[in-house]
Design a protein around this nucleic acid. Structure first.
Length: 552
DNA sequence: AGTCTATGCCGCC
DNA sequence: TGGCGGCCCTAGAC
């Protein structure tokens, strides 16, 4: 149908109509709808129309009003993208949102249909070098041959605590007190929560003035924690007293503009050397002696100059091996005994920003990296070649703003070093609710072992930490914290052909995508799941039968 | 219910 | 090489 002109009395108002009749998806009487639209438009645009007439008198161009349905994503007519209920319809003009390849949409993406499809098999190259020789001799014997059964925390244990006023950026379990979880937020506050006593929590508000990016306990000192922040300082906080001292301040002269303001992101501790290692947003690494609180040597450029170094990790077996990752699309391995700009042992290339990279927790022989290109990568120094990843697993965690960066983390208790946990960005339509699961992935096969979700948790959970000693998962989602435990008191877990379990608490109710918050805005304790239908912790726990459903 | 926004990276010019 | 606009499912405050 060609564009029509309406109402000859207003000759220069051009209405463009939907031309693609195939797209008429609705059973409604379209003529009526269009009639209404026309009337509405007419009255709405009367002013404009008069203007148009005036302008016409002055000899100006006519106004064109489009009634075409236009895709919100690509702005082109003929199709629509966006949520239909709880299912997101991709724009066919864009590459797949999940794997980034053209030719299909997310719904049809082979990686979504079966995650193992996206796994690149391991290389079996036999190149030898000093690092591999060391791993073979010292570490290989420690790698257990048998993979134990996974214990997946699957049930929200003590619901929600919401004491942070901004989104959660960092979580850490206490090294000896099993019930204590530390949390840091975008505002720089440090929370200490006893998640068994639930109501016992402390929030230290003066530790940092902006984003608390990383924290680590001081070795052999249970109640002292270091934290690195975008305010450019390293803090050392006594958890009992809340007294915090600054180990280093990279912005002693205060704000001199964003070109000079230094922010600290990656941090780890080398216990042997008694050093805190931190890295900034300009590509530099700093070593600080924990006894003297003085920097050791000069800052060292370890990533592209001017780029953010977001992660540092010392090898659990060989603490002199340092792993760094950052915005220059690389993760790099260093020997801190001989570290200088350009002296990296390996440069692990990624196609986009690397959110995190961690050595495996037991042998330290594998590396798990999370990149903004929607892929998890496994780099295996024993069976693989560090020139390329031994596994690439397509997984939705690409989001560039508003959320804390997703980081895949190893299960610290999995001696086979194959289980990883990471939150998922893309939602799953679960009984009409769009939920964002927390994924447990067997990185040795690429299989999704479990997707953990709860209808009360409608927000994305980018921050996840598995307990080093218990079957507990802590999640940070927006401003809230969640503690998950295994479903011991519930029905036995059904397991069907794929072995892919959807774990869900109180999922009987159908809900809309937007559940709403249902809470006031105070920063008081909110020991309850979110959601309008659940007003209190008591009623929430009562109403939840914590059934398990198996996804086919 | 609608509007606004804090903000990070990427690609374009 | 730098500045600027644009984003695919944000979350929460007004």
């Amino acid at each position: 149908m060609p564009p029509q002109t309406r109402r000859m009395a207003f000759p220069k108002v051009v209405i463009e109509r939907e031309t693609d009749s195939e797209q008429s998806s609705s059973e409604e009487d379209e003529a009526d709808v269009e009639q209404e639209e026309e009337e509405a438009l007419e009255s709405e645009n009367k002013g404009k129309v008069e203007e148009a007439l005036d302008e016409k008198k002055k000899g100006k161009a006519p106004i064109t009003i489009s009634l075409k349905k236009v895709c919100k994503v690509c702005k082109k007519p003929g199709h629509e993208a966006g949520f239909k209920g709880a299912t997101y319809i991709d724009c066919p003009m864009k590459p797949c949102f999940l794997c980034k390849m053209p030719g299909h949409t997310t719904v049809a993406c082979p990686h979504r249909v079966a995650t193992e499809y996206g796994v690149v098999p391991a290389h079996h190259k036999s190149t030898r070098n000093a690092l591999e020789y060391m791993f073979e001799r010292q570490i290989r014997p420690r790698v257990p041959p048998i993979k134990p059964a996974y214990v997946i925390p699957d049930q929200v244990s003590c619901a929600v605590i919401r004491y942070h006023s901004r989104r959660v950026t960092s979580l850490e379990f206490h090294p000896t007190k099993n019930n204590i979880l530390l949390s840091g937020d975008k505002k720089g506050q440090l929370g200490v929560w006893d998640f068994v006593k639930v109501h016992e929590k402390i929030v230290y508000g003066n530790v940092h003035s902006c984003i608390l990016n990383n924290m680590k306990f001081k070795p052999a000192s249970d109640d002292t924690v270091y934290a690195a922040s975008s305010d450019g300082t390293i803090s050392c906080t006594d958890l009992e007293t809340g007294i915090s001292v600054s180990l280093m301040n990279l912005n002693p002269d205060g704000w001199q503009g964003q070109n000079s303001w230094r922010m600290l992101y990656g941090m780890d501790i080398n216990a042997e050397k008694g050093a805190v290692l931190v890295a900034d947003n300009f590509g530099f690494l700093y070593l600080v002696d924990t006894r003297s609180n003085d920097p050791t040597g000069k800052p060292i450029l370890i990533h592209k100059k001017g780029s953010k170094v977001v992660g540092l990790h010392c090898n659990p077996v060989q603490p002199d091996l340092l792993l760094s990752c950052g915005n220059d699309h690389f993760a790099r391995i260093w020997d801190i005994r001989r570290i200088e700009a350009g002296s990296s042992i390996y440069d692990l290339a990624h196609s986009r920003v690397v959110n995190s990279a961690y050595f495996s927790p037991v042998s330290g022989s594998k590396i798990l990296s999370t990149s903004q290109d929607n892929r998890l990568r496994i780099w295996d120094s024993i069976f693989g070649n560090m020139d390329s990843p031994s596994r690439e697993i397509v997984h939705s965690h690409d989001f560039n703003r508003h959320l804390t960066a997703f980081k895949a983390e190893w299960d610290p208790r999995d001696s086979s070093e194959s289980l990883a946990v990471i939150g998922r960005y893309i939602s799953e339509n679960y009984d009409g609710a769009a939920l964002h699961p927390i994924d447990f992935i067997d990185v040795s096969t690429g299989q999704l072992v479990a997707e953990v979700m709860d209808p009360n948790i409608t927000t994305i959970s980018p921050v996840n930490k598995l307990h080093p000693r218990d079957d507990v998962l802590a999640s940070g989602s927006s401003r809230s914290l969640f503690i998950w435990k295994p479903k011991e008191k519930c029905e036995p877990v059904e397991q069907k052909d794929e072995g892919k379990i959807v774990i869900c608490a109180g999922a009987e109710k159908k809900r809309n995508r937007k559940l709403g918050d249902g809470s006031d805005d105070s920063d008081d304790d909110k020991f309850r799941p979110k959601g309008k239908n659940l007003k209190s912790k008591k009623s929430a726990l009562k109403s939840s039968q914590y059934t398990i459903k198996v996804k086919r």
